[in-house]
Amino acid sequence: MKALFGQLLLGLINGSFYALLSLGLSIIFGLLNVINFAHGALYMLGAFAAYVGLVQLGIGYWPALVLSPLVVGVLGLLIEVLLLRRLYGLDPLYGLLLTFGLTLVLEGAFQQLFGVSGNPYPMPAQLSGGADVRFMFLPWYRGWAVVVSLLVCFASWWVIERTRLGSYLRAGTENPRLLQAFGVNVPLMFTLTYAYGVALAAFAGVMAAPIYQVSPSMGSNLIMVVFAVVVIGGMGSIAGSIITGVGLGLVEGMTKYFYPEFASTVVFIIMAIVLLVRPAGLFGRER
């Protein structure tokens, strides 16, 4: 029994990271029409930025948690302004290729700098240890990772669906040209949306660092599953990408308990079935 709940907790953690990452991918694709293949590399970069801050510069866990997404967000600004902006209006394939290339460059550079093996990332003293809650052992850090990730997801959903700022994003996702003709600075929105999306990825990276260690390939291991999550959830629904992320994390965790050999494939099997039955995804709208 303890083993099952242990796997479910791990599934929930993975699911929260899937949710953070697919949320970012989804808003970026929705507005910019860019399939951001670099999302995994920027997740990795988030973890490394925190690693450098914490281990090499000694700035402490909490400042690293906040600063790393900011640093990666600024890098996102630069990527959008200097590179992606030139590709708008072309086939989305160009954006995919550019961001794929960026991924190779970033991962290669970090392998060169830090080697291929993982670097341990200490968790803060306040969150080490855990509690024995009757049916399982709950490590504090893992509980914290789930709660904070889901809070960030929920806050993003709330801002997008319920506020005026969010109404710009929703309108821009429908028709950016029209929105611009009404006086909204859409090019700036593109930049900020990309930055926010990749900052979410970096945040997931920092949260994941103490659980999975920090290594240059940590992003590419994860991003394939996240793309499957996005396909299953469907583009265009913020709540959909969050729910699908968490749900699939749990499904994966359960599979690890009941039929471990299957665990790394189950998401892709679900993806294939969803594509056959609902090509636009569980929550997606046909375009």
């Binding site: 710009y168 929703r170 309108a171 429908e174 006086g183 909204v184």
Partner: peptide, 13 residues
Amino acid sequence: FASLSAEENLLLL
């Protein structure tokens, strides 16, 4: 904008 309410459309600009 189809995904915005009438009032959100009105206040968007």
